[in-house]
Amino acid sequence: MAEAPVAVLGAGSWGTALAIELGRHQPVLLWSHSAQEVAALARDRENRHYLPGVPFPESLQMEADLGAALAAAAEVLVVVPSHAFAGLLARIAELAPELPALCWATKGFDPESGGLLSEVAAHYLPHAGRAVLSGPTFAAEVARGLPTAITVAADDPALAERLARRLRSDHFRPYTATDLVGVQVGGAAKNVMAIAAGISDGLGFGANARAALITRGLSEITRLGLALGGEKETFMGLAGLGDLVLTCTDDQSRNRRLGLALAAGQDVAEARAAIGQEVEGINTAREVWHKARELGIEMPITEQTYRVLYEGLDPRRAVHNLLARQMRAEGL
C-alpha cells in the first residue's frame, strides 16, 4: 500500500519550501486556493514566482481540491497568512470535521479576534490535536536544503514527536516542545521587532542600536508570552531568540525590509507593494499593541512601531521617544 502523503495547505514561499523539504523523503500534496496557480506549479515543477530555480522532488504533487487533499492526507500542515487562517480552518471543519490533528507554520495572531492561532484551531476543530512549527527559517534556504533547526510544539508530546520524525532529515533538525503558547508568541511578535530593526538600520543608527533593540525586544516578547501563559525558557530557544535574531539581522526578512523602506521615506503602502509578499508584522504590530494594552504590559518598542505603521509617526521621532523614556533597572 502506498504511503499516505502530508498535505501542505498554502503554496506561498514558506508553504512551497516546506513541501519541497518534506517531499525529499515522503509523498506530499501541495494545495493552493487558486486553480490557476496549481496548474502553473504542476506544469513548471517549481514555484517560479517565489522560489525560482528550485525544482520539486518527484514525490511532491499538486492538488487543487481541498477535500481530496484532506481525505488523502496522513498529516495536515497549514501554511497560509494569518489573515487567511480562520477562513481556511472553517473550510477544513466543513470538509473534515473529525480531523485527528492539525499542524500549522503560520506566524501571527488572528486579526479578527486578536487571539492566538491555537485558539482559532480549537474553535473550528475542538477535537483535533494542535501543533505549530516555528523557528529561525527563511524559505529560500529551506528549499535549497541548507542546514536548519526548528521547533515543533504540540499540546500532545506524541504528536510533536510524530511530526518531528516526518520533518527530520540530514539537514533539517526539529526539536520538540509542549509550550504551544510561547512558540506562537515568539514566532509572531518577532516580526514587529524586525520592522523596528529595519527602521533603526535604515536610519544609520548602527550595530549598537541594533543589538540593544534585539535585546530589549526579546524582553518585550517574553513579557507578553508569560502573560499569555507561555514558558520563560521558550523565549531563549529557537522559536524565541533564534527567530528574533534571524529576522532582525538579515535582509531576506520581509519585515526588516519594510522597516528599511520606511526609514528611506516610503509609506507603508509603497513599501508593502515593493516587497510584493505578505508582511506579517504589519498586522501583528496592531494585534500585539492592543493585547499589551489590554493586559497592562509595557512594550515600548512595539508601541513606537505601531505608531509609525498606523499613526504616521516619523521613524526618527519614534527612536527619540524610546531614548527619552525614564531610566529603569534592566530586566523583564
Rank of each mutant, 00 (worst) to 15 (best):
Y306E: 01
S118T: 14
R286D: 09
V245Y: 05
A261G: 07
G108Y: 06
G331F: 14
A128E: 04
G186H: 04
D156I: 00
E298T: 07
M193R: 00
R216K: 13
T176R: 11
A96Q: 12
A2H: 07
G87M: 10
A194S: 14
V181C: 07
M1A: 15
P97T: 06
T148I: 05
M327E: 14
S134N: 06
A189P: 03
G115H: 08
E220G: 06
L29W: 03
E231Q: 15
P81E: 02
R257G: 01
V80W: 00
T234H: 06
I297N: 07
C103L: 15
M193E: 07
R173A: 04
R223C: 10
E21D: 13
A40H: 06
A149R: 02
A160I: 06
L29T: 07
L228V: 11
A121R: 09
F138I: 03
S32I: 05
V78Y: 03
R48H: 11
R165N: 13
A209E: 02
E294K: 11
A42L: 12
Q26R: 15
P81Q: 11
N47C: 09
W289V: 05
E278L: 14
A239N: 04
L99Q: 11
R328H: 14
L22F: 07
M1Y: 11
S113P: 09
P55T: 09
V78H: 05
L70S: 10
E75T: 12
D267N: 15
A69K: 03
E330C: 13
G240S: 06
G242W: 00
I20W: 02
Q277N: 13
I297T: 02
V78N: 00
A207F: 09
G145V: 02
H83E: 13
G230V: 12
A209V: 12
T176E: 05
M236Q: 13
A261S: 15
M299A: 07
A274I: 05
D44N: 14
G202P: 08
F109V: 07
A121I: 03
D179K: 06
S169C: 06
E46L: 09
M1L: 13
F85R: 04
L167F: 15
L260P: 03
G204W: 05
D179E: 10
Q26V: 12
A122Q: 13
R307V: 03
F85L: 06
G225K: 08
R223H: 07
L228F: 13
A4T: 07
R254N: 01
R210F: 01
A273E: 14
E311F: 01
A207G: 01
